[in-house]
Structures are given as C-alpha cells and as structure tokens.
Design a protein around this nucleic acid. Structure first.
Lengths: 320, 320
DNA sequence: CTGAAAGCGCTTACAG
DNA sequence: CTGAAAGCGCTTACAG
C-alpha cells in the first residue's frame, strides 16, 4: 500500500504538507504541484480508515431499512445514495427484516465503525436510537416517527389519502372501501384517517369499509375478498401500498371485476405490472425524494447544524 | 467514546489482555470474567476503525451493481447480505448506473476503506479490476465474466433458455421468437444461443425470429411489436428478462393476444404483476443464491483460500 | 500467561 | 508557511 510518506518523500516534502495539499489547504508553490504529481504517479489513495480514526469520524452513513426487496425502499435507497455521493459519503445498507434485534446490531455497528450518522426507516415506533445519540451520531427518521425527538422526513399520508378518495367520489363511486396497513403503524392509520375524512365530507358512512392488512400482497387479496363477499360490497377501494393493491386486483379479477368499472386508488405505482387496468388513481409516493431529503438533513447535522428537530414533509402527487 | 483502556483500567488489567479476551484468546481466570464484566458495564464497543487500521483489513465487503432499482439485483443483494452477516461482515452497496467511471470510483473507495474484498456485477466485460487486485483485495464477478482471471458466479443461461424453449415446442407452438438483451452482453447471447439450439433441435428455422433489446421495459414492447407486425409472425416468444416481458405482454395485449394462447417463456418472475396471464413458462433466476454463492467464494478467498479461479454455476429452475 | 511498547496511516496543534 | 511529533484505538511480537 502506498502511504502518505511515500508521496512525501517522492515530492521532497513532509507528510504534513502532503496532507495539507490533498485536503485543499493553501501551500506555497511549487509544493502543491510536486505533491499532486507524486500522488498521481504513485496512484496514491489516502487511507480512509486512518483518516477516520484520526478524525473520529468516517465519511460513511448507515441506511437502516426493514426490507431491501420492497421497491419503495430501494427507490428510497437510490435517493439517499445519490445525495450522499455528492458530498463524498458512502452508504452502508442495513437490512433489518423488521427485527428490532438486528436493528440494534446495526446501531452498534454504526458506532463501532465511526459512521457519521444513520438514516432509519424504523421497524417500530419504539425503536431506541439512544446508542447512536449517546455516541454523538446524527440520526434522521424516515417514513415514520420514532418515540424520540429526531429530525424526521415523512410524506403527508393524510392529505394524499384524502385527495385520492375525493377523486373517486367525484368520479361517482358511492361506497369506497379502504385497505390500509397494520393498526399500530403510523403511516397506515394516517392513510385510513384521510380516507375517512373524505368519506365523511362526502356525506357517506365509512362503517364496515376499513380493512387492515400488513402491506404484503396476500393481505391485500384477503382484505379485498372480505369486502367483496360482504353483505353490502363497495364499488371502489383505496389501497395503502402497491403490493396490497396487486393482491386486491387479483381478488377483483377472480370475481370478474376490474377498474375503471370498479374504482381504485393506490399508494405507490405499479411499475412492474404488465397490464395495468385503466383508470386507477395513483398516489405517487416520492421515495427517492424522501431519501434525498433525509440525506440532506443528516448531512447538515453532520456538518454541525444546530437547533431543534425538524420534520420535513415531502409532497405527494396524484396521477388520476 | 469508551476505549479499550477504559475497560482495562476498570478490570485492573492491561489493554492487551482486554484485546485477547474479546478476541477469544485464552487467558487465566478471573481475568476473562473481569474483562467481560467491565466491557458489559461500560457498554464497550470496540472501534472497528482502529482494528481495521491495525490489521490492514476491514470486515467489510463492497457489492458493486449496475442498478439497485432492478429487482434482480436487490434479491442478489439480499443473498449477499445474509451470507456476509453470518461471518460478521458488513456490506457496502455501490450503485454504478452502468457507468464505468463510477465503477472505478468504487474500486478506489474499496481500497481506501481497507475493505476485504468486492463483489462485482460488471457494467461491462471490459471492467478493469486491477486496482483491487493490485491492492491485494479479493474480487468475485457475478452474473457475467470480466476479461480477467477471476472467481465468477453465473447461471447456466444457455441450458435454461434451451429447456424453456423446449417446453414451448412440446406445447405445440410452431414459430417461437426470442427477445434477448444487447448483442455484446454475455448473458444475452447465451440465452439467445439456448433458444436457437432448441429451435434447431426441433427442426425449425430460427431466421428472423431474434430480437435484441436492452433489458428495459420499452425495448421489450418494441421488439414484440416488430415481431407481431412482421410478415410471418410468431405464435410464441422467449423473453430474456422480466422487464422486457412486461413490455412484450403490453404489445401483445394491444393486439388482443395473451398467454396461454400465445406462448411465452420468461427469465425471472413477474412477482409484482397484479394479473399474470396463465401458462407463462417462468425460468426462475436464482438471484439470492447467486448472491450467497458469490459471497461464500469471496469470504473463502478473504480467509486465504488459494488456487486457480473457479466458476460456480447456480441452478435455474423452470416453472411451467 | 501478561504487560509495555511499537506501529497501522492519517491530521493538526505547536514550534520555528 | 512548513515540519516534527503526538495521538486516534486497536493488535501482537517481544520480553519477562
């Protein structure tokens, strides 16, 4: 491995001068030129490890997410990575499978690796990030709040669900059901609340039209089936994410129903669907923006931004 | 930050002894107990940065892929991560967007961070991994070969395409087209070759039935359109990945065709499709297995495995 | 077996 | 402005 001393002796200067040149501090010519030439010729790569140890701070951030195979989180990761790269930070992807134990292991890893900070899409609102906070690392919550005072980046789930439901009302649907996520998940209940508000505003009764799934495909199918087989079935549905929407469409299809005759609004797109029935209202979940906004907040904190925790709300768009 | 010296003084021993205990070397009791208790009480997390600098070796591997938003690569990443975690290695995800410049930057990063090795799904067969090799880092190629002597993990694209095509022949389809990836991509041409071999074995003429796309949705649609609008259109098609298959299905649908009447075989599943027409032959691409096999090879090399480069071929399965 | 000490490759306060 | 030296937190060859 070529070290800073190799460059120094080749350029005929001290290691301190090499360090200064390579970190953009002013030096007298021709030292700058000599150092740059020597570094180039030797193919010098400064050791980020040594640098991190010295500075007690690595240009690395952790992105801790529940499920790397969920397209929402991969887009989010994409947004984080692009933003981090701009500032020269590397991103370590940590997959928790919604397991609090694994989440905790990654907190410890982030500390042990001297990572500058962590972005957390929490497995649960009770996730305890104090190991990170105690070690002085910046933390930003994404998509959901945690029970601690943290910078947070979310979308306006209530508003989006309300608007999408209103579009269905305006299209003349009479009984609009809602399939959302687990009761104890913030984003799920916000979406249900938005749907309920729009329903009440339209003078309809939401009773019996709300289903809780688990954001996976099968639960969407089950929930839709339950609604369709009920005594007074709906003529439209608002679905809390795209995987459950896929399941719901399957349940509809097995009963010969399909949009646009049956109304539908969905959080997230159906990008990988070969055949998307027309007339589905898409609530675009801005996963990439969520990621890049969170990364921006985190990087600002890392660079020393002070002040109370902020919550950034990223815009959703309705494509109808 | 609590250091090894804090633990040492609390336990009344030297830092060397703490290090030995925590690294599983034998020490006389009650030192072991004292050290473990002190570490526990202080919530000691050894600095992986200091350790890496000292050992010239970090328990971190880079996973360098062209596109994190492609489900094939996310499944692969999942496989890598699970396998790496077993051995206590962290995975840094590096997204190249098929850009050789970014790929090269990540090679340098891997060296600068003292990473133990890299897993590379190469942007091109001309990717030059010598910066890694020169620095003594282990490298394994995934999905495609590179023009260097490297451990490689691939699937048997030729065999899989041949078998899938044969299933279509047995189902009575007469003119079976093939939509594969770019001509200069190894996996794409292997798939085309398998299709061609099966076609010839069945006594059919493959002329005019091969299309090259770019593994994205639009190119699948275009290619299918071109075939369907030709003078002598096919009655079946083998498609080189799932995104192009989605496009192909769209083109078929716009002409009122759909499986199972129109024959179809696809590399990769259609997991996110709400409505998958019946009778599609699925060639299961074992992305997770590819990832875990590659990680295993890499970890073995990191631990010092010697010998000539190996190529591991992961099994594909046909679901018909 | 245990401890004192050196050294991994950087950065920066300090002296000149 | 530049250089010598200390120190970040570990591990391990060496001496005892």
């Amino acid at each position: 491995m070529v070290t800073i001393y190799d460059v120094a002796s080749r350029a005929g200067v001290s290691a301190a001068t090499v360090s200064r040149v390579l970190n953009g501090k002013k030096v007298r010519e021709p030292y700058g030129e000599l150092v740059r030439a020597a570094a180039e010729e030797l193919g010098y790569q400064p050791s980020r490890t040594a640098r991190s140890l010295r500075l007690q701070h690595a240009d690395v951030i952790a992105l801790i997410i529940p499920d790397i195979e969920n397209p929402f989180f991969t887009s989010l990761a994409r947004g984080v990575q692009d933003r981090a790269r701009e500032d020269g930070y590397a991103v370590v992807l940590c997959n928790t499978d919604d397991d609090p134990v694994r989440e905790r292991e990654y907190f410890d890893l982030a500390v042990a690796e001297h990572m500058a900070g962590a972005l957390l899409a929490p497995a649960s609102s009770t996730s305890d990030v104090s190991p990170l906070l105690k070690a002085g690392r910046a933390v930003v919550a994404i998509d959901r709040h945690v029970d601690q005072d943290l910078d947070t980046v979310i979308m306006d789930n209530h508003r989006a669900a309300l608007d999408a439901t209103t579009v269905l009302v305006e299209r003349g649907f009479r009984r609009i059901a809602c399939i959302t996520g687990p009761e104890d998940v913030e984003t799920a209940s916000q979406r249900a609340d938005g749907w309920r508000a729009a329903t009440l505003t339209a003078g309809r009764d939401p009773a019996g039209l709300l289903e809780h799934g688990d954001f996976r495909m099968d639960s969407g199918r089950e929930a839709m089936r339950a609604q369709l087989d009920g005594a007074d079935p709906p003529d439209a549905v608002v679905v809390g994410n795209s995987l459950m929407a896929v399941g719901a469409l399957q349940a509809m299809a097995s009963r010969g129903m399909t949009p646009p005759d049956f109304g539908m609004a969905v959080f997230g797109d159906l990008a990988f669907a070969p055949i998307v029935p027309a007339g589905i209202v898409i609530i675009e979940t801005p996963a990439r923006e969520l990621g890049s906004a969170a990364a921006s907040l985190l990087l600002a904190r890392i660079k020393g931004a002070e002040g109370a925790s902020r919550t950034v709300v990223v815009e959703t768009k309705i494509r109808a």
